[in-house]
């Protein structure tokens, strides 16, 4: 089913992924993305380009009647890969998934421009690139340090805990928290202040 909509030839759509999956070198793709992010490495980018661009072009040709638009998809997608490489997190998913979402978003915005005459670029709101959906489920599993921090946070009173977790771990703004918890902004601010004072005592001054 998926195959039909992505224009994978129907002949091979029944072949199972296990054998095919091995053919994409995910480790290599991730490594190149990291080099682009860390060192703005043009060689790594060229490798990524040579891998993705022809495939993006082929997929775009199936969605747009004219070649200029499919080139626009390639250009915009790869340009976003160059500019957003630092947002890619290999712990959260494969490089192919990340590039796919960028390509899908670029395509969506161009199609919307054509059909609805709107340049509101809604795709990044519909499918946020920066935050993976998994991030919300396990916002603080990454580091050992965080585990220790988390234990200390969990020793806080419930009301202070939710404010600290929301602000630092889920990166909500104080305003968002106030809305979310249905509390005045002042209350959020004072709870945060109280909680931080306690955390400092528990963790020691040099730990902040």
């Amino acid at each position: 089913m998926v195959a039909i909509q992505t224009n994978l030839p129907t002949h091979v759509s029944h072949a199972k992924s296990s054998s095919m999956t091995d053919k994409i070198d995910h480790t290599q793709l991730s490594a190149w993305l990291k080099e682009v992010a860390d060192a703005r490495c043009k060689i790594a980018f060229t490798h990524l380009f040579k891998f993705f661009a022809p495939k993006i072009q082929r997929i775009a040709r199936s969605k747009f009647p004219n070649e200029a638009q499919s080139h626009e998809v390639v250009q915009d997608t790869m340009s976003n890969v160059w500019r957003k490489a630092h947002l890619f997190d290999s712990d959260k998913g494969a490089a192919t998934t990340w590039v796919y979402t960028i390509m899908r978003n670029v395509t969506f915005d161009i199609l919307r421009k054509i059909k609805s005459n709107r340049e509101d670029n809604l795709s990044d709101d519909i499918w946020p690139i920066a935050e993976s959906a998994a991030a919300e489920e396990q916002p603080y599993e990454d580091h050992l340090e965080n585990k220790q921090l988390l234990r200390v946070i969990e020793a806080l009173p419930e009301t202070q805990q939710e404010v600290v977790k929301g602000f630092y771990l889920m990166e909500m703004s104080q305003e968002q928290l106030a809305n979310h918890l249905n509390l005045p902004l002042g209350t959020i601010k004072s709870r945060l202040r109280l909680a931080l004072a306690k955390l400092k005592v528990h963790l020691g001054e040099d730990n902040d």
Binding site: V2, F51, P54, I59, A94, T96, A133
Partner: peptide, 18 residues
Amino acid sequence: ILQLTEQVAEQSFEEDVI
């Protein structure tokens, strides 16, 4: 949605290899 995205991405970009 996460799983579907992964699958579709994989299929999109392996076409050449096939």
